[in-house]
Simulated assay, not measured.
Amino acid sequence: MLGNLYGALRDAGVPDDKAQKAAEEVATCKDEIATIKGDIQLLKWMLGFVLASVIGGFGIVIRLLVG
């Protein structure tokens, strides 16, 4: 896909060195976005675990108060 970007920039008249650098920057950004998506997925799981723990804790406290 990045080869397509490089080719499109070359077809648009962008000099070779600038087209190469632009394609490399997009590749770097793509890798960073993948890393961020992974981090967000991990945070979602952690938040779910914390919420389940809090709800379970409230359940235990209510059970102790009532019984």
Rank of each mutant, 00 (worst) to 15 (best):
L9V: 03
V66H: 10
F58L: 08
D11G: 00
D39H: 10
I36V: 14
I33H: 09
A34Q: 12
V50F: 15
G59R: 02
V14L: 04
G38M: 09
D16S: 05
K37D: 09
A52C: 15
D39E: 14
F49T: 12
A22C: 03
K18D: 07
D16I: 06
Q41D: 09
L43I: 14
M1H: 11
Y6M: 02
F49R: 14
L2T: 07
G59Y: 06
G13N: 03
G57N: 14
V66D: 08
A12C: 06
Q20K: 05
Y6R: 03
L9F: 04
V61P: 07
E25D: 13
A23Y: 00
L9N: 03
R63L: 06
G57K: 13
L51T: 13
C29Q: 06
I36T: 13
A27C: 07
L42M: 14
Q41I: 07
I55H: 05
K18H: 07
I36C: 10
V50E: 15
K21G: 03
Q41M: 08
L64N: 05
V14I: 10
G3N: 07
R63A: 08
I62L: 12
T35C: 08
W45Q: 07
A34M: 11
A22R: 01
L51R: 13
A19V: 00
V50R: 10
F58S: 05
D11Y: 02
L2N: 08
Q20G: 02
G38R: 08
Y6E: 02
A22K: 00
I40Y: 09
A19Y: 03
A23K: 01
M46N: 13
G56T: 07
I60W: 09
G67N: 10
F49L: 15
A52N: 14
A23Q: 00
C29A: 07
C29M: 06
V54T: 13
R10L: 02
A34E: 15
V26P: 01
A8D: 01
D11P: 00
Q41H: 11
